[in-house]
Design a protein around this nucleic acid. Structure first.
Lengths: 146, 146
DNA sequence: CTATAACATAGAGTTGACTCCAAGTCAACA
DNA sequence: TGTTGACTTGGAGTCAACTCTATGTTATAG
């Protein structure tokens, strides 16, 4: 399989695939006599793994570490597991942060929807329109209006 | 309030605050005769808003647009609402992506935990250890072993 | 009055993950 | 055999969001 075919299959730019090989996320791919890449089954498996783990947000340096360990064999299973669980923790934390972001946005949107109805902001954003914990003026206004 | 005090209060680097002002995320801050920043209540409100929305993942260019609109007044409430809801949609999509990433990691970790018990990988990761949809060899092996 | 700390600016450097470019080589077909 | 088109490489460029550096000014404590 040529690089173009592989990239079409995985819907990934050609440059990216070469870059992954350059930095060791994909081990050296089989070549033709002429020096062009000719992906075999095994090469494709490494490509799949790289795409999978990058898609799970693995940074490239950790990923090339993971690949290095994978090539070393079964003695590194524990270390690879560690990398995976570390990443899982990170993802969980990122998810929590997004949830916080979402609730801030929800609050702010709710505020603006109310403002739209009034035709004017009930609390001028130039003065303060932040629902961030450190910014309490909006909450104060809301408390006062209750 | 000096820049240092503000930064200590919000737990943010001094350079970042100056940078925010430079790119217009924070409108020009009140200065002393000597030209040094002396944050007033209103300045602090803009700082709060910037930190809040950056924390919600707003990119700086959208944020400076948001600030520009905020300064323009109530006639821009609709536009600001659009920016906020757009960002909310992005955050929702990002959250979904993280959920997919998490399930991939869970699968991969489960696989490695099994491998650790066996003392060897049941399916050599060098050959293929990816649970990505496009990679079915692991699933095949599992089906075969049932 | 002076030493020192904190401040100011413009602009350069950093980071991660690509993405593009130039200049050359290989492959397929008429 | 020639001419496309796809491939090769090393290295430069890009992007966002800072972060740092150099050089100079202001404020404050002794």
């Amino acid at each position: 399989m040529t690089i173009k075919e592989v990239c079409e299959h995985f819907i990934i730019p050609v440059d990216t695939l070469r870059y992954y090989e350059k930095i060791g996320i994909i081990p050296s791919v089989t070549r033709t006599k002429g020096g062009q890449r000719d992906y075999q089954e095994e090469d494709l498996c490494w490509v799949k793994m790289a795409i999978c783990l990058r898609g799970a947000g693995f940074p490239v340096d950790k990923l090339s570490e993971f690949v290095r360990l994978s090539k070393e064999g079964d003695s590194t299973i524990e270390e690879r597991l560690t990398l995976l669980t570390q990443r899982r923790e990170e993802v969980r934390r990122e998810k929590e942060e997004l949830e916080i972001a979402l609730s801030r946005l929800d609050q702010k949107i709710a505020y603006y929807e109310k403002a739209r109805e009034c035709g004017k902001s009930c609390c001028d954003p130039a003065e303060c329109s932040c629902d961030h914990p450190v910014c309490s003026c909006m909450e104060e206004k809301q408390r006062n209006s209750q």
